[in-house]
Computed example of a mutant assay.
Amino acid sequence: MLIGVPKEIKNHEYRVGMTPESVAEAINHGHTVIVEKSAGLGIGASDQAYEAAGATIIETAEQVFAKAEMIVKVKEPQAIERARLQPHQLLFTYLHLAPDPDQTKDLVNSGATCIAYETITSHTGALPLLKPMSQVAGRMSIQAGATALEKSKGGKGLLLGGVPGVKPAKVVVLGGGVVGFNAAQMAVGLQADVTIFDKNPNTLESLSNYFGSTAKTLYSTQASLEEALLTADLVIGAVLIPGAAAPKLVTREMISKMEPGTVVVDVAIDQGGCFETSKATTHAEPTYVVDDVVHYCVANMPGGVARTSTYALNNATLPFILALADKGWKAALKDDDHLLNGLNVWDGKVTNQPVAEALGYDFVPPEQALS
């Protein structure tokens, strides 16, 4: 199969779909890989490194899209990229379609087969291609939040862990999944006062057993959440419903009652965000203020640590890339129900039920694409 790797063009997105090491694996499997010029510079991978791995360097993204059978990316295709997709092509990347009607419409109109990293499952029900970026984003959320708490950034002027004789900042984490767990780990490591909210009793028990007395766990109700928000210094939004838009757990009214200089970091912004006042921001302008509350809502947080993120992501995506290339996408999806769950758009149809429900499309079961 001819695999194409374009350079990412989203604002301050430095990751790349395949590392030179991943390219070498695909070449060893008998495939051809073309890489857009300078695509890997953001992770320190030169064109020469890709050529040494066996790839061919292509001058423009337009040429990559024109030639490739499978396009491997990191972030959702931007409008100019979507216009280049062809009906025979396979797109393999993060999509996050539920809060993005424009992208969904363009992908449907393209006729391409689009498999989303974030809805591929595992035998445990986990999301293996979302997990590494969730780990990165969870940990980054504390770094970003700690910086935003500085007075010069609009925050309260607090050091997250305090110092001897001065109490630490109060960190509230909404959701005890991969993002929330990693955020809590970082916050606890910095000696903050950490409370984690979740609705799953098993998750709460696991978190309590792991953190012991270093973090509190609470069952999430509107009343308990409102009470915690009133005195919080940093709130991490880490709630995910696979494929669907994130629930708006924190209303505009709740935001208005929070103390001035409080910081909220919405890691769920790729799925629309879990704060009612959230809107996507960029690494160039990461924050804005609503009712004196600082909002950090960068939609591609892991792009800020591109090298770590790309290698972590490739560790997870490479087996699926090879399966799709070795077998062809239909055979690969027939052989793996979990990979089949990643099929979001096919032949002008929406094949992911939460996306279809969120955006008003008729849902076509993904199995229909295999018949």
Rank of each mutant, 00 (worst) to 15 (best):
T121Q: 01
M140K: 12
E59A: 09
A53V: 05
S122G: 11
C114T: 14
I57P: 05
L127T: 07
L107S: 10
G40V: 08
L95Q: 02
R139F: 06
L130V: 02
S122I: 02
L91I: 04
I57R: 03
L90K: 06
L130H: 02
S46P: 06
P128T: 08
F92T: 10
A112N: 00
A49H: 11
G111D: 01
A49D: 15
T104L: 03
E118T: 01
R139A: 06
G42L: 09
F92I: 13
N109E: 12
E81L: 01
T124R: 08
Y50L: 07
G138H: 01
L95R: 00
M70A: 10
E62I: 06
N109K: 10
S110G: 05
P132F: 10
I80W: 12
I71G: 00
S122C: 08
D106G: 01
T60N: 07
A52S: 08
H88L: 14
E62A: 06
P132K: 12
S110C: 04
D102E: 02
H123Y: 05
Q48G: 05
G54H: 04
Q63S: 13
I80H: 15
L95A: 02
T124F: 11
A66C: 09
H88P: 12
V74D: 00
A66P: 12
Y117F: 15
R82F: 13
P77G: 06
A112E: 04
V64L: 08
A39P: 04
V74S: 03
I58M: 02
I34P: 07
C114F: 10
K105M: 09
V136R: 05
V72G: 02
A83N: 14
A45I: 08
A116R: 01
A61N: 09
L91W: 05
L95W: 03
I71C: 02
D47V: 01
P99E: 10
I58P: 03
M133D: 00
K37G: 06
A53I: 09
N109D: 09
A83C: 09
T93N: 12
Q48V: 07
A79M: 14
H123F: 08
A112W: 00
K105P: 11
R139W: 02
E118H: 03
L129H: 07
L90M: 06
L85G: 11
K67Q: 15
H123D: 05
A66M: 13
